[in-house]
């Protein structure tokens, strides 16, 4: 999603950008790191898991879509508070959000992943892959859990995660952008901020490559989500039509 930088930014510029992105990330995270730590051992019981598993497919979709829609609002707010984003034209703001919000959520989701028992925070408690069985999307759910697992192995700091999310969000190659240059500049600045952050932490130089290597998996999950949604729409058109308008706006064609 990024092109190598042709222009350099001053240390001050990238520092300011890093501060803006990290501040925005902290302010707009649904759960703080402390809350996540506190919730870590709050697991669904076998009985509760079975209850989810026996839900009708439509009901489970509705519930997951409601969570996703709620989470999207936090991504919109994350973007809005990053300096420079609101200076883009509104058409381009919308294009970047539509194309990138699920990727941002997938990156930030690894905060809510517990590697000791391969569970993810869902509706206030940690859930296993099996809990989502009634969605009828085992491959999508597995891919999401596997991504969370491999992302959590990278042990990203909050700063790295915030900057990486912003790099992905500000992708200048999204189709239909009216003015790519300011998006490219914004991405370049965040990318350089991320590089500087990694250097400062003395991170292994491969860490950035490992982060970028997750992008194909993220993209494939985004595509799989659209495929599943299209299929669900064929099976249950009325339920799909009742999904929240924000969800339909973001994932409608």
């Amino acid at each position: 999603t990024h092109s190598p930088l042709s222009e350099g930014f001053s240390l001050l510029e990238t520092e300011r950008m890093a501060q803006s992105v990290v501040k925005s990330h902290v302010e707009t995270s649904q759960y703080s790191t402390e809350e996540l730590k506190r919730l870590a051992w709050n697991l669904y019981t076998a009985e509760e898991t079975r209850t989810y598993q026996s839900k009708p497919m439509e009901a489970m979709w509705q519930q997951c879509v409601a969570h996703l829609t709620n989470a999207i609002q936090y991504v919109v707010e994350f973007a809005k508070r990053i300096s420079g984003f609101m200076e883009l034209c509104q058409n381009d703001q919308i294009i970047l959000l539509k194309a990138g919000c699920l990727s941002v959520l997938l990156i930030q989701m690894c905060r809510a992943y517990n590697a000791t028992n391969h569970t993810l925070l869902f509706d206030g408690k940690f859930a296993s892959v099996q809990l989502f069985k009634s969605l009828g999307c085992d491959d999508l759910v597995n891919a999401v859990f596997e991504l969370a697992k491999s992302m959590s192995r990278l042990q990203l700091t909050e700063e790295e995660m915030a900057l990486f999310s912003a790099v992905v969000l500000f992708s200048p190659d999204r189709p239909w952008l009216t003015d790519r240059q300011p998006v490219q500049r914004l991405q370049g600045k965040v990318y350089q901020a991320l590089q500087r952050c990694l250097n400062r932490e003395g991170a292994n130089e491969h860490k950035l490559n490992k982060m970028l290597a997750k992008l194909p998996a993220i993209k494939s999950i985004c595509n799989l989500h659209i495929d599943k949604l299209e299929f669900f729409r064929l099976l249950h058109p009325e339920t799909a039509y009742s999904f929240p308008p924000l969800y339909r706006e973001v994932f409608g064609s």
């Binding site: 936090y74 919109v76 707010e77 919308i94 959000l97 706006e249």
Partner: peptide, 20 residues
């Protein structure tokens, strides 16, 4: 614009769900 009514509104709102 009609197509992205909610996104437009979220982008224009100074108070967002996060602040509430």
């Amino acid at each position: 614009k009609e197509k992205h009514k909610i996104l437009h509104r979220l982008l224009q709102n100074s108070t967002s769900p996060v602040d509430l």
